Amino acid sequence: MIPDLPAPHHYLSIMVMAGMPGQSAFDVDEVVSTSPRDTVTVSISTAAAAQYRSLSMTSECTLQSDGRHLQFGSFLTISGHHPEFSVEARIPGLEFDLHFAMADRATWFVKGLPYDHLSLLGSFEGAIHTDDSALDVSGKGNIEYARCVGPYAVRNKLLPRTLKVPVDFFTYHVIELPEDAQILFCRVGILSQRLGDIVQHRTTSGAGDWRVNETSSDRTYYEVLEYEDVSRIDQGGHRMLLPRRFQLGVRGKLLVTGVYDTEPRYGVGRGYIWGYEAVVEMDGRTLRARGYSEYVDVRSAP
């Protein structure tokens, strides 16, 4: 993911989910044509173009066992070995070839059974083409990897909603700051209650890094200030009301106010990905920045 790109793109996202996780917020039952374990969903988007596809892992993907070559259909290839990776994508209206050089240190959100999730920060360079524009680009970007053990490890048939792990809210943000820094924010909810927040300020060098984990107090917060007027309806007929403006942060330490300014793209489980303008108040400074967001809210889903 890249949170800040020149117009007309503003951000870039590739979201691959290999196998359904058995969670309410992330299972997309209507795209499963073979089995939950075999189904891969791939979302590729910028503000200029987007594609969402489901594939069979066994018949439409090539996943090399050492991870050095991952191919999804004929439109996405991820190759390389840490710390260097190449990403090539070809979808209608958008093509890009990017090379990433990642820092040695990983940011671990969670580490240990039944869930691992890490994020790598690094630099990128390459080219992005649309039908009417071509851009040479460079900057900072993330490569992230997560894996989990879910109910489909035991049963490879679709579960009714009542038997899925009841994760029903998720939002994740990457906000780009000057001096090779980022703010990361993640909130997860279960059974309509906050499970926890993670807020992290990180740099490529590690200087000035800090992190706040919160599960019980209101020290960390996420608040939608304004929603869109009409709910979005996905390909399965599910409705979701998306935020237009929001705030997040750590009381007394960080305040981010975001206003979405790109079209939401379906593709993170049953939720959406898009970009926004942000005002960041931190360390006595006020900065203007760009952010990248993932948002899933199925708390009121039938």
Rank of each mutant, 00 (worst) to 15 (best):
146 A>M: 10
76 L>E: 02
174 V>I: 14
170 F>M: 15
104 D>Q: 05
103 A>F: 00
4 D>E: 11
182 Q>T: 10
54 S>G: 05
216 S>Q: 15
230 V>E: 12
116 D>E: 10
139 G>A: 10
110 V>S: 12
241 L>I: 07
255 L>C: 10
164 K>M: 12
156 N>R: 09
149 V>C: 03
55 L>G: 05
229 D>V: 08
116 D>A: 02
15 M>G: 02
79 S>V: 00
144 E>T: 04
208 G>Q: 08
62 T>A: 11
216 S>G: 06
48 A>F: 00
136 D>Y: 08
141 G>I: 01
226 E>S: 12
254 L>T: 08
261 D>Q: 07
230 V>S: 09
108 W>D: 04
77 T>R: 08
87 V>E: 02
36 P>Y: 07
222 Y>P: 10
233 I>E: 11
92 P>A: 02
225 L>K: 12
192 S>D: 09
275 G>R: 03
300 S>F: 07
227 Y>M: 12
241 L>H: 05
101 A>L: 04
74 S>P: 00
19 G>N: 05
179 E>T: 07
208 G>E: 07
282 M>S: 11
12 L>M: 10
230 V>W: 02
109 F>K: 06
2 I>M: 06
114 P>T: 07
165 V>S: 07
129 H>W: 04
169 F>S: 12
144 E>Y: 00
185 F>W: 12
288 R>C: 05
211 R>I: 15
248 L>E: 12
292 Y>F: 14
136 D>G: 11
4 D>S: 13
78 I>S: 01
65 S>D: 10
36 P>T: 08
82 H>K: 01
216 S>W: 15
103 A>H: 04
261 D>H: 14
158 L>V: 07
135 L>Q: 14
174 V>G: 07
61 C>T: 11
213 N>P: 01
266 Y>S: 06
273 I>C: 06
107 T>F: 13
275 G>A: 09
288 R>F: 05
86 S>H: 03
160 P>S: 04
217 S>R: 14
243 P>H: 13
92 P>S: 00
152 Y>F: 12
142 N>G: 01
193 Q>L: 15
298 V>C: 08
188 V>S: 12
24 S>A: 12
76 L>D: 03
70 L>E: 05
198 I>A: 13
204 T>G: 13
264 P>S: 02
193 Q>P: 03
34 T>I: 15
293 S>V: 11
83 P>D: 02
83 P>E: 00
110 V>F: 08
13 S>H: 06
31 V>K: 03
179 E>F: 06
228 E>M: 08
212 V>P: 02
11 Y>L: 09
245 R>P: 06
132 D>I: 10
219 R>M: 14
301 A>L: 14
93 G>T: 00
173 H>A: 14
184 L>Q: 09
296 V>T: 14
111 K>H: 13
